[in-house]
């Protein structure tokens, strides 16, 4: 009789342990450490790089901050996460009540944008805060591991990272044959400003991973101010990149003003017809492994054009 009772209790105990959400993983992040559920199912992400991380391991978020412009979640992501997410508004001020109404079990927020709301977000669901906007490409890949742990998909994420690194290395190998150590400069162009992404920025370090070089290296210890360098035509001509890749944020940009100036026409990249245009949003705002792989495809197309010219 007693054995039966003990056995019964044991069975009930084991079943209830299995059915309760198990809070096991403790994730260290920018604002401390947070206990997250074992494998979160309803995730809300508030920056694009976190969408990238989820897509890398085939997880679809229930809600995300897409600035209310669904097209900002590019096809490469939609292919994996579908398009059934609920927009929680802008990345700057995502709607907290909409986030709460999705009943998330994990929120991933950005340090620069959402630190002030960390306490409030934590009231809604376990929240981890990562620096999505600062840091280079290796740092962005490293962040993927943290998100992998938070999702309870450590192994899957590590496997994906290994695959990704192999892919990038393969691209680098093919580019090497065409243009070993060539100085490739990425810049975003607006109506009144050209901003170069330096070697220590996300895009600069990604180009470096592909085997390209840069003359725009940070000069002092604080790299943050040297990530994105607003540049005059004189400075651009002094750097004189061999290939210039432009992401336009406006229909008419400062490059259109420079077009007829001798200084611009004398740039090596201009003379050799090696100025190329890419999607500013995908290159500049998105970061992560999926984004880096589509950058690789863009670069591959550019390299094909260059080799056709030879």
């Amino acid at each position: 009789m007693l054995f039966k009772k003990v056995g019964h209790c044991l069975v009930v105990g084991v079943i209830s342990m299995l059915s309760l959400p198990v809070f096991s993983a403790v994730i260290e992040h920018e604002l401390g450490s947070t206990q997250v559920p074992d494998s979160p199912q309803r995730i809300v992400v508030l920056e694009f790089s976190f969408v990238d991380a989820l897509a890398a391991v085939n997880v679809a978020p229930v809600g995300l901050a897409d600035d209310n412009k669904p097209e900002r979640i590019v096809a490469a992501y939609r292919k994996i996460i579908g398009s059934d997410w609920i927009s929680v508004g802008t990345r700057k001020t995502p709607s907290l009540e909409l986030t709460a109404s999705l009943k998330p079990d994990l929120i991933i927020a950005d340090k620069k944008r959402h630190s002030a709301a960390y306490a409030t977000l934590s009231e809604i669901a376990p929240t981890i805060v990562l620096d999505s906007l600062v840091g280079d490409y290796p740092a962005a890949v490293k962040q993927m591991s943290v998100i992998g742990n938070a999702l309870g998909k450590e192994e899957e994420m590590e496997q994906r990272i290994t695959e990704h690194k192999a892919k990038i290395a393969a691209y680098a190998e093919t580019f090497k044959a065409l243009s070993d150590g060539m100085y490739v400069q990425f810049a975003t162009a607006r109506a009144s400003r050209l901003t170069l992404h330096s070697a220590s920025s996300y895009n600069g370090s990604l180009l470096n991973a592909f085997g390209f070089s840069s003359k725009l290296n940070p000069t002092d210890g604080d790299a943050r101010a040297n990530f994105y360098v607003p540049t005059t035509l004189e400075q651009l001509s002094e750097l004189n990149p061999e290939v210039l890749i432009l992401g336009n944020y406006a229909d008419v940009t400062i490059i259109d003003q420079w077009k007829n100036e001798a200084l611009y026409q004398n740039l090596s990249a201009v003379k050799a017809g090696k100025v190329f245009h890419v999607d500013a949003h995908s290159w500049s705002r998105l970061r992560g492994m999926v984004a880096a792989e589509s950058t690789a495809e863009d670069l591959s197309a550019i390299m094909k054009k260059i080799s056709a010219k030879k």
């Binding site: 907290l96 620069k112 630190s115 002030a116 906007l133 943050r224």
Partner: peptide, 22 residues
């Protein structure tokens, strides 16, 4: 760079976003 001032820029416009009991 604009991202660095994301929070201050919202604050500069006078917003009650994310304000709560605390």
């Amino acid at each position: 760079p604009p991202y660095q001032f994301s929070t201050p820029l919202v604050w500069l416009t006078g917003s009650l976003w994310s304000r709560g009991w605390s």
